[in-house]
């Protein structure tokens, strides 16, 4: 338990550092901070999208992602997302924009049609750090087989049917593993399964 708590503590320090690098890029257009972010995340991003895409496409995604990290840094809100999460969403959208002709439909926080969160929040209010800790805990508690399908679901263009073919499993098995993994995560956040 002590070891586990220490890991999470180290992870939070890392996460705070990544956030401040991203804020330096946003506020001071700091190229050194930008380079540090690239060195931290480009290898992970390559590994993350790489397994199911060609090398040229992977490099295009990495390039497009970091160009957009620079350009959109002013839109980053550290209260809403960790640097890793925000860069993940930029990479996801870059991939879609590169592969498809139509832009990804996105929520815009300034949309007048947006229904705001109720003033009296129906949700438990927890900090983003606490959210990170719970997510990490839920992920590490998942059986390997559920972790695997979840990871594949986030990979380039792996629909549930593709995952089933890749793992040589019936589609129903893949779907139920995904459902179980999501239920485990909802439970960690105190929501009904």
């Amino acid at each position: 338990m002590g070891h586990h708590a220490m890991n999470i503590g180290a992870r939070l320090d890392e996460s705070a550092r990544e956030s401040s690098l991203l804020l330096l890029v946003a506020q001071s257009r700091d190229v050194d901070a930008f380079r540090s972010l690239f060195e931290i995340f480009a290898p992970r991003l390559r590994a993350f999208v790489g397994r199911n895409a060609g090398a040229a496409l992977v490099e295009d995604i990495v390039q497009e992602t970091f160009v957009n990290v620079w350009r959109k840094a002013n839109l980053y809100n550290p209260e809403r997302a960790s640097a890793a999460t925000w860069i993940y969403t930029i990479a996801r959208n870059a991939r879609i924009d590169l592969l498809r002709k139509t832009f990804r439909p996105e929520v815009d926080a300034n949309d007048p049609a947006l229904v705001p969160e109720p003033a009296e929040p129906a949700f438990e209010q927890i900090s983003r750090d606490q959210e990170d800790v719970r997510l990490k805990r839920a992920l590490s508690a998942l059986p390997a087989e559920q972790h695997e399908v979840l990871r594949l679901a986030y990979f380039a263009d792996m629909a549930h049917g593709d995952i089933a073919a890749h793992l040589n499993l019936p589609l129903g098995t893949v779907k139920s593993r995904i459902r179980l993994a999501l239920r485990r995560i909802r439970l960690e956040f105190g929501e009904e399964p």
Partner: peptide
Amino acid sequence: QRLEALGGRLMADAVGSQNDS
């Protein structure tokens, strides 16, 4: 937001190597 954080987590956990960076 939570499922995007999950994607961020999975990406951050991926192990890559510095090649030609």
